[in-house]
Write a protein that binds this DNA or RNA. Structure first.
Length: 261
DNA sequence: ATGACTCCCAGTGGGAGA
């Protein structure tokens, strides 16, 4: 077995338009070879998806998108199998989930609903979507003990994941209802890989484009990698890569990477 | 400060994101 195959890395990145960010994604993959990468907010209909460019970079890719909003993709160094789009049994016009098996690991990539505001219809949708996701993750876990659920959760699990928890208290991403759903996923036997390790205080995965938020490090940790019990003992590292946020025309999110033995 | 930016589809503005 080669040295490269001895360590396995899986990553998630909300790219906020793959049409704009494709060069950055290819540059990032060249510098950060991974076994699999899930993307959110591709914002591309399938006929416009740049699969040829991604395959030329050495990655198999499945994708599922729509115009303007949402859209997800699964990239893997080796071909992946048993791909499922969205949540079976949950009727949804929005392209938010892509699942596939990569080297024996079931990978679920999700772009969780934003929810807009706790008193909005979009929050009601977010709650229903989260419940449906929990059910399908539970089913997937029963069939695939080695499982990673990762993506843009649009939930800051704890106050330490928020730059100003007082100002954000009860606001979208920080409501008790959203946090309870996050804990519901943890309750399935999943572990927040980032918190398996000592991390710098004020570690965020998203910074608002406005108000010099990145420069001032005012952000939220809302992009997560959850690993199943069968994988937990193999996790060697988990980190947020802030470098792409320093690019020109960056996504507002940074990639999150987990390393397995 | 109920803002600030960026993306998109639209089209000379507005919705959504988080």
């Amino acid at each position: 077995m080669s040295e490269a195959a001895a360590v396995r890395r899986f990553a998630t990145w909300n790219v906020n338009s793959l049409a704009v960010r494709l060069p950055q994604v290819l540059d990032w993959l060249a510098a950060n070879p991974v076994e699999a990468l899930v993307l959110q907010e591709t914002k591309l209909t399938d006929d416009k998806f740049p699969y040829a460019e991604i395959e030329a970079a050495g990655y198999a890719v499945s994708f599922f998108g729509q115009k303007t909003y949402n859209g997800v993709a699964l990239l893997s160094r080796e071909p992946h199998e048993d791909v499922v789009m969205n949540i079976p049994g949950f009727a949804d016009e929005q392209a938010r989930v892509i699942t596939g098996t990569v080297g024996g690991v079931r990978v679920i990539g999700g772009y969780f609903p934003n929810g807009q505001a706790p008193d909005s219809e979009k929050f009601v949708y977010k709650m229903a979507w989260l419940q449906a996701l929990r059910d399908v993750v539970q089913q997937e876990l029963a069939a695939h003990p080695k499982l990673i659920l990762m993506g843009d959760f649009n939930i800051a699990p704890e106050d330490r994941d928020v730059y100003d928890p007082i100002a954000w208290a009860g606001q979208i991403h920080c409501t008790p209802e959203e946090r309870a759903h996050f804990q519901g996923l943890i309750g399935l036997g999943l572990t927040d890989a980032f918190r398996l390790f000592e991390q710098a205080a004020k570690s965020w995965s998203w910074w608002d484009y406005r108000n010099l938020a990145f420069r001032k490090n005012q952000g939220l940790r809302i992009d997560h990698i959850l690993v199943s019990e069968a994988l937990r003992g193999l996790v060697q590292a988990c980190s947020i890569d802030k470098l792409p946020r320093k690019n020109e025309r960056p996504s507002d999110h940074a990639p999150v990477v987990v390393t397995l033995a």
